[in-house]
Design a protein around this nucleic acid. Structure first.
Lengths: 107, 107
DNA sequence: AAGCTATACGTTGCCTGTCTACATATGCAT
DNA sequence: ATGCATATGTAGACAGGCAACGTATAGCTT
């Protein structure tokens, strides 16, 4: 996801807290199946976001299985807003350069 | 530029061959000043693209200064088309997930 | 002549993010 | 017992991007 993973994770947690496995499924669902991120990508990212203060994690046991549920912190919401802004800017710049007319100064 | 740099470089070379320094300036111009890429980013990328067969480089001397001018190869044009396709997909997925309604199933 | 800026090339070495592969454990169905 | 879905995680490799550094010429100013 080339540096945009953090934003995506924060975005799916905006609707409410989820645990890691559910986050992977949520990303899959929201992307229409396009995003199938391996645990080796997502779990470290969650740790990273927690360490950064964007997420708060807590353990619970559901049906004999251990779960670590993450929720957005206030800082996380700000981070999400920032990520959305940065994404818009990034998107615009890349789209502009990528689709620039190959004919310089036609008229 | 997180993995999209190659596409941007190929895109500015679509209009015609340029040397490294001019590529940096072209990216700056096309992005409205947003992109100010350091040489440590661009020159290795050019080498990489040449090694990959997307660019063909040639030396020349202009005004006593050495220049390495790069032009798109046929493979490079295909690579550019592929990059554009990938970008569209990437853009759609990220935009969708990032801007997904926080209210699941409103009605 | 000395110094500065713009032009033009490049490398080295670090940091970060991502992924593959591996490791662990439970519940449930067969 | 075997296998699958659920659920967590780590270790190690790899690649891209960047800051910092290094080299050199042309041209202008002082």
């Amino acid at each position: 996801m080339r540096g945009h993973l953090d934003g995506l994770i924060l975005a799916v947690l905006e609707a409410g807290p989820l645990h890691g496995y559910a986050i992977i499924e949520a990303l899959q669902a929201r992307s229409g199946g396009a995003l199938d991120l391996p645990t080796g990508t997502v779990y470290p990212a969650l740790r990273r976001l927690e360490r950064a203060g964007s997420l708060a994690g807590s353990w619970s046991t559901v049906g004999g299985r251990e779960r670590r549920t993450y929720k957005l912190t206030r800082a996380g919401k700000h981070a999400l807003a920032a990520q959305r802004g940065e994404w818009e800017e990034f998107r615009e710049v890349v789209s502009r350069v990528l689709s620039a007319d190959p004919w310089p100064a036609t008229g």
